[in-house]
């Protein structure tokens, strides 16, 4: 088999009600995407624990995506607002650590926004391909 182009590995945290549904809708609409994404389903973006985000990076994720329902649409009243506040802390941490800011991204995607989901995956993957593997990725891991 010919040597293929390096494919980054991106971990996306998706909430059950919106962004996971957005990924489903992208599939139903056959919006083709790079095969870089690995989705972790949680019930609410409020469950996305910064610790899990660190772990994804330390394990070897080239980027981590935090996604959830649009603000105001949370299935659990306001979990996504809490996710947003936590994300801001994470964002500042990533910046201070010296990791490229593009490696951590937040996006609100509703269950109907399949195309938006697919475009998001395409854009992030293209950007990460430019940046190359994450400097936190352990040697020999993919």
């Amino acid at each position: 088999m010919a040597e293929k182009e390096w494919e980054p590995k991106i971990v996306a945290f998706c909430c059950n009600w919106c962004s996971y549904g957005g990924a489903d809708t992208a599939g139903m609409g056959r919006f083709q995407q790079p095969s870089s994404l690995r989705i972790i389903r949680v019930m609410c973006s409020g469950r996305i624990d910064p610790m899990h985000v660190f772990n994804a990076f330390l394990e070897g994720a080239d980027a981590v995506l935090v996604t959830g329902c649009h603000l105001g649409d949370c299935h659990y009243v306001n979990g996504n607002y809490k996710a947003e506040v936590r994300y801001q802390f994470l964002e500042e941490m990533v910046k201070q650590l010296g990791l490229e800011p593009e490696r951590l991204q937040l996006n609100w995607i509703s269950a109907s926004e399949g195309e938006k989901f697919a475009n998001f995956v395409r854009d992030v993957t293209a950007k990460i391909k430019e940046l190359g593997p994450s400097p936190l990725k352990p040697e020999g891991v993919n």
Partner: peptide, 27 residues
């Protein structure tokens, strides 16, 4: 959280212990 999910056996470039503490103490 900083201790329970951190192990000496991890082959990480930084330890989970410090990462979690950096976050928990940032505010």
């Amino acid at each position: 959280k900083c201790t329970m999910f951190h192990s000496l056996a991890d082959n990480y470039k930084m330890s989970m212990y410090h990462m979690v503490r950096l976050l928990h103490l940032s505010d």
